[in-house]
Design a protein around this nucleic acid. Sequence first.
DNA 1: CAGACAAGGCTTTTT
DNA 2: GCCTTGTCTG
Length: 733
Amino acid sequence: MSQALLDHLNPEQQRAVKKTGGPLLVLAGAGSGKTRVLTYKIAYLLEIGQANPYEILAVTFTNKAANEMKHRVETLLQVPVDSLWIGTFHAICARILRIEGKRIGFGSNFTIYDVDDQTRLIQQVMEGLNISTHNLKPRKVQYIISDNKNKMIGPEQYERMAADFTEQNISKIYYEYKKAMQQNAAFDFDDLLLKPLDIFTRYPDILEKYQKKFKHILVDEYQDTNKAQYHLIRQLSASHRNVCVVGDEDQSIYRWRGADIENILSFEKDYPDCEIVRLEQNYRSTQTILDAANALVARNKRRLGKNLWSKKPVGVKITSLYGDDEAHEALQVADIIKRELMSHQYSYNDVAVLYRTNAQSRALEDKLRRVNIPYSIVGGTRFYERKEIKDLLAYFRILVNPKDSIALRRVINFPTRGIGLTSQQTLERHAVTQNINLYQALIEVENIPELSKTRQQRVSDFVNKLEDFRQEVATSPAYQIAVEVVDTFRLKKQYTENMTLEDEGRLENINELLNSIANFTETHPEEPTLDKYLEDIALLTDIDRWDPNYDAVTLMTLHSAKGLEFPVVIIVGLEDGLFPLFRTFNNDDDLEEERRLFYVGMTRAQESLYLLWANQRRRFTAEDSGMSFRNMPSRFLTEIPDQYKEEPIVSRRQPGDRSFPGKEYDKVSTSTAQVAEDSLFKIGDWVKHGSFGKGQILGIETSGAGTKLTILFNQKELKKVIAEYANLQMVQS
DNA sequence: CAGACAAGGCTTTTT
DNA sequence: GCCTTGTCTG
């Protein structure tokens, strides 16, 4: 049987799988089958009796990859491997924290704070410290704190390094933030990695337990590990030293969040006795795409070097196109998709459109919707970050962890129940002076004479309901509680009263969340509790929520595309300043990372690759909102040798193609009549608006902001909207 | 205290 | 355009 496993692999892959003792570095180029190697290696270790499932730790980059890998191992071996430890760094750390939490004293009911929660907490901390949020934005402080955590710099060390007044303030905030997180029994994403390390240092017996347990450790995407992750692997593998890391330095794209490419570059130094296997045969792309990508990335200095080759045919050359602006670019994308689907037997989900920034998706969405090409977006405004969803989740979070004051503040007066700002401030003051948490203050509300009897009553009504649910939360299934909470606190009522289109959307989202909880309850029969559910969704990646089988074109950032492949890949926005971004021009390391990102994008393509850039693009930046930029083509385009590219197709947009007037930023031709003539919209046209519904255009005028349309909605509401923003769809009267 | 309305910032990538 | 924040009124 074990030989049968190996038969599916090429000689290098076999070598990687068969090396079962000691450190192993697998340098796996794009599309060289590294997931396959990891999967087979786990299967092989189990098959030959080198390890039991619970003695293997495998770290993947997404939860989806973890589930797929586990599933494939089970298919290969025909036995379940439930006790395997496989997941993302964050998921595995959360698991360790739950197990060890009780003993360490923080309990196992902690909450995971996302960036939004963190920022709110930082804002509170700043208010408490009397530091104005005017010049120093909480969001920026959040970023700085996270950055320092990624480098394993704590508040003490940061304080010592603080050079100026602002940094001294940040250091104060950092201290208080850390304290507040503890009081809230909350961990942020960085804590999830740092806390286990902290525990290992303070409780060596716990470290020893895991060192003994994990006889074999496998890590995927090792080039994107940060300092904390590096130390975790180092410490956990110290006893058995059977550590296999797989990665590709050319695909390291997370430097900005603390990933250190040195981790993979110096693996040999860390483990002088390590074996190195290079996987250079690519099974994904045509030779043309591969050669072009190789030539591009060869310009980078900091790499171990390899040369990918493919047995696949040479294939078609890379197509590059350029057009007028983002709307025109989107039109070209739509054309490419239609053409590819017609000339090959592709379906929509064979096509991916990749971009550097999430904001670029809007123009694409607009166009694809108009021409009826189905699409699905990965990332962007995330489902779990929507207001109505966060409100609902806040209720659940309080039930699981009443110390979570961010969640409590969020819903203490939502839906409004007569506990206004003044009452809240009184409660907070009481909490601070009595040195108790906010939830406790609500429970003891009758001890707060500053609040009138009616106010006290309102508070205790609220907190008593919560207390009732808290009795249930550990035992009842998540779905049951969720439905009861929505019912008791009338969380849908807000949105059912007027039923605008926006309300409908919010209701849909709430129902979708309830469905997902129902689904969770069914698929986790052994522990269908709310706290497990909350942890699950907190650690989801964007890709985890994406369904590759749904027949739609996929729109996502280049970062999200890592690890995926599509027959047709279209990369848009290849303009100097956007990709690569302006701010990377003066820093070689940053520029090399942008180049690697482009390399990742190119190597997603199996058959055809399209590269697009637009002459002019409207961008929102901190300095200049909504201005249009003139762009030069990306320097990366010229770094691809001509022999792999078709002559660039320069197309001027035909007047009839215009989704909106193209020249209004030129400041040359802005007379109303002319723009109105150029516009896709005419007076009298019928359009549909996302929240206002159907309406008729009564007037068109131009202003500095764009084309202003006066529209009569539902025959009664007169509104002025900016055409470029309004997300309008043309409809028949 | 609640709701309506205006004003201003925003977008580099994500666990 | 979106979203958050601040201000005003009943």
